[in-house]
């Protein structure tokens, strides 16, 4: 069976969606937690960033897993969507949904918008091509250093603050993050269902947790641009 052989099976396709989705969700959780360091201060955030960069090959392995997951997630979802559209060629003149939430019915659209958002996000913060003027090095002396070594590292804090001080960029991020939350609301519990974990005594809890987690992630991530715009963060720059 080739790498994409699973696409021939409806259930295996769903399993791949669930597993790659799980990887991406875990990444979003870690990423969110990391980003929260911004509220502790410039030093924490920049050290965290420097730590990540110091991982070297491990960082590349993580990136590889993430990229692979994202690619499989996207390819599979597109294939599933086309099949689904074909399987329901004529629609009802009147349609009343009984149980399907808006978030579940818009997965492909929120997914496509999230993809564009992520591309922008990478261009903005990772490749730094959209706003190169926000890129500054920081010269930093570790507290516990014996000698007075000065290290040059990337000033993430300054970049984030400068970026979000532009209201347009902040709005893009706020909207993007809300879309992620919307996607996750359906996605997290869906993972459990697809992988076969649904019993009456715990599944309602999973569904609630799914929504709650999505809301927490949105609140955390949205709080950053809002704090910058309101001047709670980055006033010193």
């Amino acid at each position: 069976m080739s790498l994409f052989g699973y696409l021939r099976s409806t259930i295996l396709s769903k399993v791949v969606m669930a597993i790659t989705g799980a990887v991406l969700v875990l990444y979003v959780i870690v990423h969110t937690a990391g980003n929260m360091l911004i509220f502790i201060g410039k030093d924490s955030l920049n050290s965290y960033s420097a730590f990540l960069h110091s991982l070297g090959p491990i960082l590349w392995i993580i990136r590889a897993v993430l990229i692979l997951s994202a690619i499989l997630h996207i390819i599979t979802s597109i294939k599933l969507k086309f099949e689904n559209l074909a399987a329901k060629p004529s629609k009802y003149a009147v349609k009343n949904y009984l149980k399907a939430k808006l978030s579940s019915r818009t997965m492909i659209w929120t997914g496509i918008m999230i993809l564009s958002f992520v591309v922008y996000h990478l261009l903005h913060f990772t490749f730094r091509t959209t706003n190169p003027q926000h890129y500054y090095p920081e010269f930093y002396q570790p507290h516990n250093a014996v000698s007075s070594i000065i290290i040059e590292r990337f000033d993430v804090y300054r970049m984030v603050v400068l970026g979000f001080q532009n209201p347009l960029i902040s709005i893009v991020y706020i909207v993007g993050v809300i879309l992620v939350g919307f996607h996750l609301d359906h996605a997290i519990q869906s993972m459990f269902q697809t992988l076969g974990y649904n019993q009456k005594h715990y599944f309602p809890t999973i569904q609630k947790c799914s929504t709650t987690l999505a809301i927490i992630i949105v609140l955390c991530l949205v709080s950053i641009p809002i704090s910058v715009l309101l001047g709670f963060i980055g006033g010193e720059i």
Partner: peptide, 27 residues
């Protein structure tokens, strides 16, 4: 078509058969 975990099937089922059986089948 494929399952998108909308759970509309369960809601419309006149015998109210649970989607937990889909989970079991997936496994």
């Amino acid at each position: 078509g494929n399952c998108s975990n909308y759970y509309e099937c369960e809601a419309a089922c006149p015998k109210q058969i649970s989607v937990k059986f889909i989970a079991l089948m997936n496994r």
